[in-house]
Design a binder for these strands. Structure first.
Lengths: 199, 199
DNA sequence: GGAGTTCTTGACCGTACGGTCCACCATAAG
DNA sequence: CTTATGGTGGACCGTACGGTCAAGAACTCC
């Protein structure tokens, strides 16, 4: 093993991810990556390859975590309908956090690089298809639990929810105040996931 | 007036806008702008200032046009409800066009530059507030025409529609096939703008 | 036609970028 | 202690970028 690494790989990847997340791909320079990681150029290149490779690696681990958390959250909720409603709260969390509103790294990357980098586009497509499948499973459970009309299409509902969520994320990025954002999320949730038992 | 300009300003601005729209701000170089405009560096700088000024000018004229078209479309529709439903078709048009799916220039710019450039963020905020107001007016008309429940809040509905639209635009950018995108748009329209008279 | 003014072209500049390389260092094995 | 191996840090490189400038061209006015 010779000389051991002086850095924690996960820590470095998290720092790099945050940098790309805050500033985007093009606006992040190698100097930025060196600063946030605390590594020299040589170490960075030896460990992760060039800027694009590092970015793709960070992007992949980001979506892996995202899908993992989504799977957990949807599976663990006692009531599936509540889990679906929670999906629309994610943008609110982004707006209330301390730092800048940075939305979703995958969405930002798709906007910035989707037309220029087929790998990124493909990754985006796969990620959102996977999300749709997870959400659709949860919607089907909500149907079984009697909280959603049985005749609804779970996949269609999943796509509608995902679209609403991404739209909210974007509105958060425009600087919409948290109260209005929250009200809009509630409004969308009420219309896309109405209380079925009461009606 | 001395020597007259050899280019049409509007034509140049449109070409530049398309370039920024396709590639984004950072990924567009001055060489790109020279190529698509047919102008030399000197002419570009003399006529429009530096890259950022040119970009902001293009962005402003883009949103001016956008709001103008929106105002027209919403006002001219015989039935307000139909105009509101048409809002969700815009992302479909983007997906069926010949070129790459490039979404909305204002949205792309907000994602890329919103955190770094307060001017862009402010412009985005104002633009979407203006859009919301226009859509809310149309929703109010739909209420007067008996196509929307009178107790609904037009502004809240406008924000929900705008969020849904932006979400659909984003899903189009991930490469979602047109049929699925269309189905999702129809699904969202059905839930956000249900047929009130029939139900 | 001469003067004045604006536009055009492209050479030029400084800089900051992504990427490479190498001398040095810290550890493990023998 | 010696040697081998991989890690580190920073000097270095070529390039492409955004931006400036000056010389000449095209036009108007007198």
């Amino acid at each position: 093993m010779a000389r051991p690494r002086a850095f924690d790989e996960k820590q470095v990847l998290n720092a790099v991810r945050d940098q790309f997340w805050d500033a985007g791909y093009a606006a992040t320079s190698l100097a930025d990556l060196m600063r946030v990681s605390g590594l020299g150029k040589g170490s960075l290149y030896a460990a992760f390859g060039d800027k694009r490779q590092l970015f793709l690696r960070v992007l992949t681990s980001y979506t892996d975590e995202l899908l993992g958390h989504l799977r957990e959250a949807l599976a663990e909720a006692p009531r599936a309908l509540d889990a679906l409603r929670t999906l629309l709260d994610a943008p609110i969390d982004d707006s209330t956090g301390a730092g800048p509103r940075r939305g979703c790294l995958m969405a930002n990357s798709t906007c910035e690089l989707g037309n220029a980098d087929p790998d990124v586009l493909d990754h985006a497509h796969r990620t959102y298809e996977a999300s749709t499948a997870l959400i659709a499973d949860c919607a089907a459970r909500a149907q079984r639990e009697g909280d959603l009309p049985a005749e609804a299409d779970p996949i269609a509902l999943a796509r509608a929810l995902l679209a609403a969520q991404q739209g909210l994320v974007f509105m958060s990025r425009t600087g919409l105040d948290t109260a209005t954002l929250t009200a809009t999320a509630r409004s969308l949730a009420a219309q896309l996931l109405p209380d079925h038992t009461g009606g």
